[in-house]
């Protein structure tokens, strides 16, 4: 796809996605490069319903064999130029295969540089670590900051999901890996200043040599994830999570309304959707909480099974609707 003269030395697992902006406002995938075991596929861009001039590009992150074998390392660098929008997707969960020893760690590093006004939506399938897998990943999001603007207005927007499941429960696996670590960092990068850490969300599950010690820390959850929202494109979505959390039924309170569905009070559409969703949360053993800190909205959730988590996220994102509007239907493919 690219025709740069001096191509960088090819290292296994390296990849570059460069989404450039051709004047006046046509985003174009300037570079999509990858090396085994990483594979990138980019179907044609889509135009979203409400902003026809905003074409959204999509890239699928794939790996040969659908996952990482012990010792594999993936380094992906993504550059989003001003006002571009990218949807990243996976095709099925990322499998982490067994490692012969805990010294052989497979790694996945992703660095995303977001210029002003750009947006990234990364709602992948969950990571699925098999028994004795050993894995660490780190996602770094560098947000360019306009020095002249007030505060951080005009910076890029992020909607990124990071979730992991207990392996292959059908094969008797239940958090039976050796090590799983995942770190998400967002940095604010003023043009002429030192970058500042805005958010760091770091999870480390290590059995520390004791078989089955991770599962005791999971309290019956089969999937656990974090959704991070930042920037103007996802502001209303973040607010939606905050609002929905604040009207959750109180724990340990009496449910005065239970049993009587014949209330004459006005039940609006949002309240009805909420009631359906909350019943489903109960059925799936889904627990979630949300915090708005430092301009980011961070949602944490856990469920007994992957499907429960997936269903809940999809319902929340569709009920609110802005991801679909701003980035198109495709952005939600992995949650289907």
């Amino acid at each position: 796809m690219s025709s740069t003269f001096a191509s960088p030395p090819s290292t296994p697992g390296n990849g570059i996605i460069h989404l450039a902006l051709l004047p006046p406002n046509t985003p174009r995938l300037k570079t999509v490069k990858y090396q085994y075991p990483l594979k990138l596929i980019s179907p044609g861009p889509l135009r979203t319903a409400d902003e026809p001039y905003h074409s959204v590009h999509t890239v699928y992150l794939l790996t040969y064999g659908g996952g990482l074998v012990a010792g594999d390392t993936i380094d992906l660098h993504i550059i989003l130029e001003q006002a571009t929008r990218l949807v990243l997707l996976t095709q099925g969960s990322t499998k982490l295969f067994k490692s012969p020893s805990r010294d052989i760690i497979s790694k996945q590093n992703t660095v995303v540089d977001l210029a002003l006004g750009s947006a990234l939506c990364f709602l992948p399938d969950p990571i699925q670590p098999f028994e004795k897998a050993c894995f660490e990943q780190r996602q770094i999001y560098n947000l360019a900051v306009d020095e002249d603007a007030e505060g951080v207005s005009g910076t890029g927007s992020l909607c990124v999901l990071d979730w992991v499941c207990n392996g292959r429960p059908a094969n008797g696996e239940n958090w039976s890996f050796l090590r799983y670590g995942s770190k998400n960092e967002i940095y604010l990068c003023p043009v002429n200043g030192k970058r500042r850490l805005l958010l760091r969300d770091s999870l480390l599950l290590d059995d520390e040599g004791a078989d089955g010690s991770v599962v005791t820390r999971m309290d019956g959850l089969g999937v656990y994830g974090t959704l991070i929202l930042y920037g103007s494109v996802f502001r209303s979505l973040g607010q939606f999570f905050m609002d929905e959390f604040s009207v959750m039924p109180r724990i340990g309170g009496r449910k005065w309304d239970s049993g009587s569905e014949d209330g004459e009070e006005d039940v609006d559409e949002a309240a009805m959707k909420r009631a359906v969703r909350q019943r489903q949360e109960l059925a799936d053993g889904l627990l979630w909480s949300v915090a708005s800190v430092r301009g980011c909205v961070v949602v944490k959730f856990g469920a007994k099974e992957v499907e429960g988590g997936r269903k809940w996220l999809r319902t929340m994102l569709i009920d609110e609707g802005s991801v679909w509007r701003e980035l198109g239907e495709r952005a939600l493919l992995c949650l289907r």
Binding site: K183, S202, L203, L204, R217, L221, S289, K300
Partner: peptide, 19 residues
Amino acid sequence: AAVTVPPMDLWMGRHELLY
């Protein structure tokens, strides 16, 4: 530095929801 007991974050966050 990292969270090593993930449900801890859920319980802490959901403290706000206690009746």
